[in-house]
Design a protein around this nucleic acid. Sequence first.
DNA 1: ATACATTATATGTTATACAAATATGTGTCA
DNA 2: TGACACATATTTGTATAACATATAATGTAT
Lengths: 263, 263
Amino acid sequence: MKKDTEAASFRPVKQNRISEEVLSQLKEAILAGTYRPGGKLPSERELCEQFEVSRVVIREAIRALELTGFVQLRQGPSGGAYVQDLTLDHLSNAFLDLFLTNKLSAPELVQVRLHIEPEVCRLAARNIDAAASARLEKAFEKEHTDTLTHEQWVARNLEIHYLLGGVCGNRYYEAVLIPLLDLTREMVLVVKPSHTVIHDHLDHRRIIDAVTMGSDDASAEAMREHISKVGASLIDLETAYREKRGLRAEAETGPGREGPQTG
Amino acid sequence: MKKDTEAASFRPVKQNRISEEVLSQLKEAILAGTYRPGGKLPSERELCEQFEVSRVVIREAIRALELTGFVQLRQGPSGGAYVQDLTLDHLSNAFLDLFLTNKLSAPELVQVRLHIEPEVCRLAARNIDAAASARLEKAFEKEHTDTLTHEQWVARNLEIHYLLGGVCGNRYYEAVLIPLLDLTREMVLVVKPSHTVIHDHLDHRRIIDAVTMGSDDASAEAMREHISKVGASLIDLETAYREKRGLRAEAETGPGREGPQTG
DNA sequence: ATACATTATATGTTATACAAATATGTGTCA
DNA sequence: TGACACATATTTGTATAACATATAATGTAT
């Protein structure tokens, strides 16, 4: 959203940093397929010569590519900036940051989960096949296995939800869902509420059955009820979480505000 | 999602980069409220002394903070790393990257818009007040004003959608919606289809009326029909867009795949 | 008072050197 | 032959010092 000034169609001429220019060119090269996932960029020294800039600038650009998930850096001979396939997981950090700075709240998360996940589940039911069904079943079995750590327990009990995100066949949904689940996991992980509070295995059983049978309405409804139960507990965790993390107590406008000023 | 190895609860001991450690500490300080939005971090030189590391390391950490939206860098006296409030807009770049690398497709976008926006609209109807209503009305009037540039035209015709995202009162929805709209805008901006293809002012009129009246069901339905119409055109833009941008033609698994390997 | 040059202070960039990680080859020993 | 230790070369990671550039604040002349 830009300022909607009435006059003059000139563009601001802001002097870009050199590293931005380099970053832009490197990124364009990756997008164009000059460098593909699995391959690697030229070494920093080579890039220095090609761009005719200092190594600091090159490094800054490459670091930016690393932070956005385009490359992975490795040291040593046959090291370098290896081009990677972007993954949906990278988004979670951004959402976590928003949550930590009180730009998102638990009730908002739950409200969205309550609306998204049933739909994801519905699509999953329409899209299910034998292999996916087997993965769900396997994950469900693991839920009952003894777990060594709390972390493991949490991970296993959310696995079904992650899997459904993949099965639904819409990667935008998955991209939206993963941060939701990661945030949920983060809260449960830090607060460590008693296990029984959060979870009811029968819910998962019912969901998997409905999805596997391909009955979309039933799947959506099963998920809706599940989130509906779990949601309340999740909301309760928020204050405990923020305290444990020692975040600054915020006087935010909160979820009831009226959106950004746009003119 | 981590690997679920059965044995050994040891943690990988990966030697973190110094800049990561610095980044982590600076970020924690911001989250804790030591440095607040509007204020600024110590100068690079000062941080060098405090952390007892070189300026290169400090810069890398600060640049990372800049890229994630935590600070804004300014030059000159009274320059420095000014702490900023995180905004939801930062996410759009990440989603755009995913789209450019064929990790997201137009049909997926549309499918999500078709599900999300009616719900956003419903919540907006429940949450509407005089001020918000006025903003919507003002934006609608501007749609009919003569526009100088194509860019301006596109921006004005999407403004309603952005505004509703703010009005709905759930920032997670807004965070999900903004990238959707930005992607839509990007495609229309690059391909420059004839104006009439994309838009029908009557739809917007109907939406605003319903929202202003506070009738949630009607709002949702109006929006659903609107997206339903526009969606088809949007999907048609995708190939033209990717060609114009000169992106590498991809042999991706596509939206019909079965999610990432997790088992 | 206004316009303009000066200055001080921050980031932005360059150059060079060295530290640390690590694949690859080399040699030694069984 | 095979396995293991070891040197080696290559690439990123970090340190240091210097200079370039942007810019708020200050001073100066008209």
